[in-house]
Design a protein around this nucleic acid. Structure first.
Lengths: 349, 349
DNA sequence: ATTAAGACCTTAATTGATTAAGAACGGCCC
DNA sequence: GGGCCGTTCTTAATCAATTAAGGTCTTAAT
């Protein structure tokens, strides 16, 4: 069966290609009888309908939004914060009747042309580390772009929260409860897969801008409270998993003196820290306070965290991209909120 | 700034369009000097690179896999089972360097042409109710298609589990523990948004084939054990949420005599039933046994469930679609497994 | 009878690329 | 100097549609 196009049908009926096109896309331009006959023949020949690619080319619109995410897709789908954002974005796409093209980025050195070849009308870039090659590829496409969380790209709308302020809020919470011995567990600072202690230089050199800024907030709050940041144990993990959190928890809780409060930059990590505390028989919050981030998996575990409007951010990103990019603000900062639950309390004196 | 195409650059340099094309796609066809000049001018003019749509048209491939899902996208992203499947599918797409185009289906009566206009090479259809119009639209595209879970479409590969057998396995588990008073809570049977008791006729009329079959498994096992299915209270909910599960739990546990075991067709629902049990002060598993399904959110809650190889299914679906559809088996049934945890036990005598 | 207005269909330009085949030219060898 | 080969670029067909503008008829009004 050779390919069936508009022309095939036109030839078969002795009419012009344009006529057949009208039969599909503009019924009012044709007599009912001819239209019926065209559709009949189309059906008979097994015509699959106007080729979307050709249509897309002619009409100059792709009908899809591209989504770029630094992690592997499997990972992105495993992260509650990302999922919340996807939901919002998907809702916006749904409302506009466009698809969401999720673009895998080559992991490792394998090169791929997914960004260059993506048939989309706009890009949403999320959580890319500084200098990631995909960003350059996206910008080269000269399509509307919004960036979420990181990195900041001058000239394109940015959606996120005031990271330093949010980080400081989380830290200040435990500091104001009276904690003086803090520990920090963070994921997603670097791309090198390192797990272990991280000193100040390494912390400052983080390639993920949002996490770097969040950490700066932690530090600022600590220093404002008179703590020496260099003395705050800082454990970095490579994967945002409960298991990694447990490992960080064990490392931090194994220190002498033991921290009485641990800050984490994701809820999933915080849950792992709670696991570690349980392993050691430490009571939370009596003997240990834990703060998460994003409020993505915190409620049931009674975790104190910073709540972010993930879905609203996704929806806003979608609307921004689909509105034709008119009058987009440079920086769209969303509200965040400290949610105090049962994982934090004053330290035992 | 008018649109910049290959031709613009060609004209500017006084070379042919083909030459410019070669500069981008086949460097070996050109002298280094000219190629450099072309790329320079391209950069200068702000050329965004060869138009992907035009390329796609010429090359006859879209570089994307279409994913059709009956629920709203926000919902799909909220369901752990779907997410597991997506992960697998995404991994396969990633390996092949193609994108994943997630297609929203119009909810309600709003019509949309997303399926007709989707620029994809193949479709993966998941969990569509019988007779859903989107299926016809997909089939009309005459592209490779695989269907996951439901509905079964003759002539196209089907991926899923042996639903009746899996359902029977779940039911048999509690029956063999000695339970005689069962209750069932199910979601995703009908599209009408109904929540409440469902009699046998309504159960059998479910439009989602997989869930219908799973229920048949429950019934078969019960009848084999000598129970009268008509006497088994059956509560149907419209949304797969913990809250809906709690509601179903309250309904079922409010019956006299109270069921000693409740079967649910998703883990999320089962968690809700556990909530209801907790509300009523019922001890699990001493006073109530609960069985989930899919092993998607069960581990931490200690839920007995049927484990499904969601990720493997996703990966298999992807590979099948990307392999050019050669020699695809008609029906690919995946293994499932009863995982017994702490939510089931013999009834108290 | 003339003219205007519709209805219905065709012509042809356009969307932005890819690529096989061919042409022009220089260099090399005999 | 002619034949041959290689390099480098051009020509032109092709992918599959959309749509403004124009051409025929038919019909109705003056």
């Amino acid at each position: 069966m050779a390919k069936v196009t508009l022309q095939t049908i036109a030839d078969r009926l002795g009419v012009s290609r344009a006529t057949v096109s009208y039969a599909f896309s503009r019924p009012d331009q044709l007599s009912d009888g001819l239209r019926r006959r065209i559709l009949e023949v189309a059906d008979e020949l097994g015509y699959a309908g106007p080729n979307p690619t050709a249509r897309s080319l002619r009409l100059g619109r792709a009908g899809a939004l591209g989504l770029i995410f630094s992690e592997t897709l499997a990972y992105a789908f495993a992260d509650p914060y990302s999922i919340g954002f996807f939901q919002g974005l998907a809702t916006a796409a749904e409302d506009a009747g466009v698809g969401l093209l999720i673009l895998p980025l080559p992991h490792g050195d394998r090169r791929s042309d997914t960004v260059r070849d993506a048939v989309v009308d706009a890009f949403c870039v999320m959580s890319l580390p500084d200098g990631h090659p995909a960003l350059a590829e996206v910008l080269a496409r000269k399509l509307p772009v919004v960036v979420v969380d990181e990195p900041y790209v001058p000239g394109h709308p940015f959606l996120g929260i005031d990271e330093p302020a949010a980080g400081a809020t989380a830290a200040r919470h435990v500091l104001e409860l009276g904690h003086r011995r803090l520990g920090v567990a963070m994921v997603g600072l670097h791309e090198d897969g390192h797990t272990g202690w991280a000193g100040p230089e390494r912390q400052r050199a983080a390639t993920f801008a949002a996490m770097r800024a969040r950490r700066e907030g932690y530090q600022r709050a600590c220093e404002e409270a008179g703590l020496d940041w260099e003395q705050v144990p800082f454990y970095e993990v490579a994967r945002n998993s409960r298991e990694a959190g447990r490992r960080a928890g064990h490392a931090l809780l194994g220190r002498d003196p033991r921290p009485t409060a641990i800050l984490t930059n994701t809820d999933v990590l915080a849950l792992g820290v709670l696991d570690a505390a349980a392993d050691l028989g430490l009571k939370v919050p009596e003997e240990l306070s834990v703060v998460g981030f994003s409020d993505s998996a915190a409620e049931e575990a009674g975790l104190t965290t910073i709540r972010q409007a993930k879905q609203e951010m996704g929806a806003a990103a979608g609307r921004l991209l689909l509105s034709g990019g008119t009058a987009a603000p440079e920086r769209l900062l969303f509200p965040y909120e400290l949610v105090v639950r049962a994982s934090t309390a004053p330290p035992r004196s």
